Simulated assay, not measured.
Amino acid sequence: MIKEFKDFAVKGNVIDLAVGVIIGGAFGKIVTSLVNDIIMPPIGLLLGKVNFTNLFINLSGTPYGTLAEAKEAGAPTINYGLFINNVLDFSIVAFSIFLVIRQLNRFRRRQQEKSIKAEPQTKECPYCLSDIPIKAVRCKHCTSQLEISVQINKSH
């Protein structure tokens, strides 16, 4: 059982996943800072100096100036400003990941196209000089049986 666990834990996919989670956590902190410290202040200024983190609905009936004061007093609140910040965080993370995945897919497509172009798809029949598929053992034009040595020589 210990050997099985060791094999599982050391597999490349598990390690890749762990690295992805760690990088994702760090990336999440960067995005949260971007939203809270760079994006939200100008938006709040444009909307009349509104601080989204202090947007809340107080359910206790006692007035509080900030969300921190309401939380300190233990008042029940609906924190829709924090929800707006989290939606913006998610949107930015999702869009960033979309852009990265899009570029990776574009790079993979180019690599696949290069590998497809690099491999010959046809060879020449030594008898009738027609192009035939690389794996053909008989010419579709003249029906000649192709020798194995011809296939090896033509494919290199």
Results as ranks from 00 to 15, higher is better:
residue 10 V to K: 10
residue 47 L to N: 10
residue 82 L to P: 01
residue 92 I to R: 08
residue 3 K to Y: 13
residue 128 C to I: 08
residue 131 D to C: 04
residue 129 L to K: 03
residue 126 P to T: 04
residue 87 V to Y: 06
residue 116 I to Y: 13
residue 108 R to W: 12
residue 146 L to H: 08
residue 58 N to V: 03
residue 31 V to P: 02
residue 4 E to C: 03
residue 22 I to C: 05
residue 52 F to L: 03
residue 106 R to H: 11
residue 24 G to I: 03
residue 44 G to K: 05
residue 129 L to E: 03
residue 148 I to F: 08
residue 142 C to P: 01
residue 20 G to F: 11
residue 110 R to Y: 12
residue 154 K to N: 11
residue 119 E to T: 14
residue 81 G to V: 13
residue 133 P to F: 02
residue 114 K to F: 04
residue 109 R to L: 12
residue 109 R to D: 13
residue 126 P to D: 01
residue 119 E to R: 11
residue 109 R to W: 08
residue 98 F to W: 15
residue 26 A to V: 06
residue 90 F to K: 08
residue 20 G to W: 14
residue 112 Q to S: 10
residue 156 H to V: 06
residue 128 C to A: 12
residue 3 K to D: 14
residue 118 A to S: 13
residue 147 E to W: 07
residue 70 A to T: 02
residue 44 G to C: 10
residue 68 A to S: 09
residue 94 A to D: 08
residue 60 S to G: 04
residue 106 R to I: 07
residue 97 I to D: 07
residue 126 P to K: 00
residue 65 G to K: 15
residue 101 I to T: 14
residue 27 F to A: 06
residue 39 I to E: 00
residue 102 R to M: 13
residue 82 L to H: 02
residue 22 I to G: 12
residue 148 I to D: 13
residue 19 V to W: 15
residue 21 V to R: 04
residue 79 N to F: 00
residue 83 F to K: 14
residue 9 A to Q: 08
residue 103 Q to T: 12
residue 97 I to M: 10
residue 109 R to V: 14
residue 149 S to R: 15
residue 122 T to C: 03
residue 6 K to S: 04
residue 5 F to S: 05
residue 57 I to R: 07
residue 109 R to C: 09
residue 81 G to W: 07
residue 9 A to E: 11
residue 112 Q to I: 10
residue 42 P to Q: 12
residue 57 I to G: 04
residue 138 R to I: 15
residue 131 D to M: 03
residue 131 D to H: 13
residue 136 A to P: 00
residue 5 F to N: 00
residue 148 I to W: 09
residue 87 V to W: 10
residue 63 P to W: 01
residue 40 M to N: 06
residue 102 R to A: 14
residue 60 S to V: 01
residue 96 S to R: 07
residue 100 V to N: 00
residue 55 L to I: 09
residue 54 N to M: 07
residue 21 V to I: 11
residue 96 S to G: 15
residue 48 G to Y: 05
residue 122 T to W: 05
residue 24 G to F: 15
residue 79 N to V: 01
